[in-house]
Amino acid sequence: MHLDHSHHGPAAVSADAHRPDGTRRALRIGLGGPVGSGKTATVAALCRQLRDELSLAVVTNDIYTREDAEFLLREAVLPPERITAVETGACPHTAIRDDISANLEAVEDLEETVGPLDLILVESGGDNLTATFSKGLVDAQIFVIDVAGGDDIPRKGGPGVTTADLLIVNKTDLAPYVGSDLARMAADAKAQRAELPVILQSLRGDSGVTEVAAWVRERLTAWTS
């Protein structure tokens, strides 16, 4: 790292992979995607699945309320001190990409108050298909779309669908009811993303978030090794 923490106090830039004391900080994974695609439900399911084996926390970026943070609190997926809501000034993509300062403050405060943490999930407010996370804020990002939003979304591509480290096609149980062709969505996603992984999931199904949780564990293993 370019900053010598022993002389300069807290790091200026939080993309630094180490804490001020030199240990490796928590892995940060961003979850973005359109409104209603199931980002918060996926975060809740991940928390339930991972909370017994990992020390984790969540940052939500609600657009105009604290609904997402309150949903997670109500569902009691984590103790309240492990969930922080960031206010985004009507522009969620700005807060996760162009000016990440409030989010960086939130992840640092979580590390300080409830850390050391293994994993911090940063959930974006529902936004458009071009919204992606800054590499200064997260180490990996998941883009969540759903079958009811139209089965042409993978074909249309865009930065979220094309470049996210993991693409989740959510609510597969709804496909027959909304006339979405899952095979076509999977093939289009594959064509857009080459080797980058795609997971089709239904949180109401038996396996739920298991596959995504396994992907998160892999990332964590790579991060800490």
Binding site: E87, G89, T94, A95, D99, A102
Partner: peptide
């Protein structure tokens, strides 16, 4: 556009 958080305040 200086990234100092001002965009979230009115």
């Amino acid at each position: 556009r200086f990234p100092a958080g001002g965009h979230a305040h009115s």
